[in-house]
Design a protein around this nucleic acid. Structure first.
Lengths: 154, 154
DNA sequence: CAACAAATTTACGTGAACGTAAAGATCATA
DNA sequence: TATGATCTTTACGTTCACGTAAATTTGTTG
C-alpha cells in the first residue's frame, strides 16, 4: 500500500501529464492546482502521483467541457470540497453535523458537473444523429447511382 | 413555398444567430462563411436565411467539437462539397462519373465529422459514468450517516 | 567541489478570436 | 432632401492560455 511515491519534479509531472512546466506553474498561479505539496526550503517544487492525476483530470475536463480555466476552477471547487471531506473523514472525531454538510456540498458540486456533462452529451448526440442521417442519404444516392449505371449496362 | 426571404443585413443576421457583425466579417475573412451573396454595387452585405443557418451551424460545431476556426474550416469542406453537389445535381446533365465523385467526397468529409463526434461522445460518456459513480458513493455515505444518526436517537 | 542539468522568478512575446474606435459611405424614413 | 441608424474598411486594443528568454539558484553526479 505504501507506494513510496514521492519527489517528482515539475518536469517529470509535465512529461507524465503530457504538458509543460509553464502550464503547471500557470495553473498553480490561477489556483487550478494547489500549491506544490513539497517545497524544501523554498527550492524546487516537489510532487507526487496525486498531483499528476489531478493535472490530467484538469486537462481532461478542460478538453471535454470546453470551458475557460476560470470556469473550470469554479467547477473544481467540487474536488477541493471532496479533498476536504477525505481529509476530515480520516479523523474519526468529526461531528456528523459537519460531516453531512461536507458531503452535501460535494454532492452539489457533483450535480453541477453531471448536469453540464449531460447537456453536452445530449447536444453531441443530436449532432451525431443529424450527421448520420445525412450520411445515410448520401450513401443511398450513391447506391442508386451505382444501380442505375449498371442497369444502363454502359 | 416561395418564402420571399431576402435582404437581411449583417446586424440582423448577427441578432438572429446570437453573435456580432464583427464575428460575421471575421468568419467571412477566414473563409468560414462564403462571401455575402448579395452586395449591391459594393454597398452593404445582404444575406438570406440560408446564411443565418450556416452561421448557426458553424457556431454550434465550434462549441460542440471544441476545434479552432481553422480546423473547423477544413472540416466544413464537407458542407462546401455538399453545396457543390446540390448545385450540380440541380442540372440534369451531370455525368454519373462526376456525380459519384462528388458524392464520395461528401461521404468522406461526413465520415471525418462523424468520427470526431463519436470520439468526443465516448469520452463524455466515460466522464459521465465516473461522475455518476462518485455521486452514488457520496449519496451512499450520506444515507449511512442519516441511518446512524437516527439509530443513535440523538 | 566542479560542473552541468533542471528549476526558479520576472517579464516580455504570441496566436487565436474577436472588441472597439475612427472616418466615412449607404440606407431607410420623415 | 435631410438626418439618423446602420454599414463599410482600416487598424489598433484586449483577453486567454500559454511560449520564450534571461538571469539566477538549486540538485545531482563524476
Amino acid at each position: 500500500m505504501t507506494t513510496l511515491e514521492q519527489s517528482l519534479r515539475i518536469g517529470d509531472v509535465a512529461r507524465l501529464a503530457g504538458t509543460t512546466p509553464r502550464t503547471i506553474r500557470y495553473y498553480e498561479e490561477l489556483g487550478l492546482l494547489p500549491q506544490a505539496p513539497g517545497r524544501p526550503s523554498g527550492g524546487h517544487r516537489l510532487y507526487t502521483q496525486a498531483e499528476v492525476d489531478r493535472l490530467r483530470e484538469v486537462m481532461r475536463l478542460k478538453e471535454l467541457l470546453g470551458v475557460s480555466l476560470q470556469e473550470l476552477k469554479e467547477l473544481l471547487a467540487a474536488e477541493e470540497a471532496r479533498a476536504a471531506v477525505r481529509a476530515e473523514l480520516r479523523r474519526d472525531d468529526v461531528e456528523p453535523e459537519r460531516r453531512r454538510e461536507l458531503l452535501n456540498q460535494a454532492l452539489g458540486h457533483l450535480d453541477r458537473q453531471v448536469e453540464l456533462v449531460e447537456r453536452r452529451a445530449r447536444d453531441l448526440a443530436k449532432l451525431h444523429e443529424e450527421l448520420s442521417a445525412t450520411r445515410r442519404r448520401v450513401r443511398r444516392k450513391l447506391g442508386a447511382l451505382d444501380a442505375h449505371t449498371r442497369g444502363a449496362r454502359s
